[in-house]
Amino acid sequence: MSDTGAAIAVEGLRKRYGDVQAVDGVTFEVGRGEFYGILGPNGAGKTTTLELVEGLREPDEGTARLLGRPSWPRDPALLARIGVQLQTSAFFDKLTAREQIRTFAALYGVPAARADAMLGTVGLTDKAHVRDDKLSGGQAQRLSLACALVHDPELVFLDEPTTGLDPQARRNLWDLLREINAAGRTIVLTTHYLDEAELLCDRVAIMDAGRVLRVGAPAALIRELGVATLEDVFLRLTGREYRG
């Protein structure tokens, strides 16, 4: 299991919260340099799956290996090689954009100059002295992404990075994600925007009720099911086309 293997190898993950089986036997693999999407309606188990894969929570069953190493128990050497953007922007209280990213950079042993450059990459240099709660939704998402990427990780996890953004901000962020992926990083994102997945992802996994229903390239899934868009694929698979 050296660095030549898959970026992510997930096998039989299960997680139960009380009566709810949030993740119910999830298995998938992501190749190096791939742009991978996890799709599903709200409550499908996307976020829990991502958290199990990242090593944020201990799975009841199953394993997740990232870059050849198990993500649970916590492995600081592995964490230094992955970047994470959580669903909520995790910022320190009352710090400016520059102070936020410099703090995160220091956690990874990255110099301040590199942090400032990253701020420029996401187009926030002119917002360097603005506090996180004064940034717009799109700016906060870009800062959050910059904090996830500041240490140049090989593997990046993004949980619904475009939720709540206006159309311009979404497109802006898409361009940024494509650049990062083009630079050779593996990206895994969750979303419930199907146009986004169709546009960005090499392959998608469609989830519902804690299970992966189908995995494939968006175009291949559309062809396979003989429908027009990924949205039709999604509705066909999750069986929600006739619901109110």
């Binding site: 990242e54 944020l56 964490l79 230094a80 959580l86 995790a90 209280d93 990874y108």
Partner: peptide, 18 residues
Amino acid sequence: VNWRKKRVLRRLWLAPVS
């Protein structure tokens, strides 16, 4: 409370810091 609410606790768990 603030770090739990803003998920900074979780974020720090996923950073290579002891």
